[in-house]
């Protein structure tokens, strides 16, 4: 699990509750190495989205210790952390708010002090990486669901170095097969560290070599993706169902 590579995300005994005493996550330990692609799976309400939101500092009242690229996850370090770690929302509409795709993708770089030319270049680079450079001048509200998802990812990539960290919440939700396939290709081509929370086990299989399973407030599995996807009984016990494609393979 990349033990020889320096960890970019280190979580020690992390706990979080929305209401006092009712923990959604309790005693989570995790270490993610640079360049790893990690799938986060679990049933509804297992805490997948909460877990990702904690990592980007949207839910600051966690207990325990989290380090992102050496920075302790606390308010004074948010700016530095968010410079190298982006979060793609489940609903891309929430993430796209500027008029055109290029303006939206350049929004982050402009806020981080890039000049207009640098921001434009960063935006175009990110759009190329997500294969939607031809949509640069398109109005955001005219994009299809798949295009919106890719534009949202480009908005994160524009701000990062090639090896940044990207967190995605249900990236394949409501995508048609062609857009899903395109997204899988884009995610695979990313060189940075990826954490993908999804119910879509096929998608996780296609994009992540490592998977963690959240259940009953804890990580109950952390290991090889193929291995967990062979264990039908274990998945079902934790509120998941093996994808049809896997059942046929077996």
């Amino acid at each position: 699990m990349g033990q020889n590579v320096e960890p970019v995300i280190e979580i020690e005994d992390m706990r979080f509750c929305y209401r006092e005493g009712r923990y959604v996550l309790d005693g989570v330990d995790l270490s993610v190495a640079k360049g790893e692609s990690v799938g986060i799976i679990g049933g509804n309400g297992a805490g997948k989205s909460t877990f990702l939101k904690i990592l980007v500092g949207l839910l600051p009242d966690y207990e325990g210790r989290i380090r992102i690229e050496g920075f302790l996850l606390e308010k004074k370090n948010y700016s530095a952390i968010r410079r190298s770690m982006g979060y793609v929302f489940q609903d891309s509409d929430s993430q796209l708010f500027m008029n055109t795709v290029e303006e939206d993708v350049a929004f982050g770089p402009m806020n981080y002090g890039f000049s207009e030319r640098e921001a434009k270049e960063a935006a175009l680079r990110a759009l190329k990486r997500t294969n939607i450079a031809d949509l640069a001048d398109r109005h955001v509200y005219r994009l299809s669901g798949g295009e919106k998802k890719l534009a949202a990812i480009a908005g994160i990539l524009a701000l990062q170095q090639e090896e940044g960290i990207i967190l995605m919440d249900e990236p394949s939700a409501s995508l048609d097969p062609a857009n899903r396939e395109n997204l899988i290709r884009v995610v695979r081509e990313l060189k940075g560290t990826r954490l993908l929370a999804s119910h879509d086990l096929d998608f996780i299989y296609d994009t992540c070599e490592r998977t963690i399973l959240l259940s009953d407030r804890k990580i109950v599995y952390d290991g090889d993706t193929k291995e967990i996807l062979r264990d039908r009984e274990f998945l079902e016990k934790n509120g998941l169902r093996l994808p049809l494609s896997f059942r046929f393979q077996r």
Binding site: V56, L58, S79, R82, R83, G86, Y87, F89, D91, D93, S94, Q95, F97, E103, A106, F107, G108, M110, N111, Y112, E116, A119, K120, G155, I156, L159
Partner: peptide
């Protein structure tokens, strides 16, 4: 809920109330 998500998305991408002319 959605307004909160938009605001979070803006802050995650470094928005601090400044506007830029492009």
């Amino acid at each position: 809920d959605r307004a909160q998500a938009v605001y979070e998305s803006m802050t995650l991408r470094g928005f601090r109330g400044e506007f830029f002319l492009r």
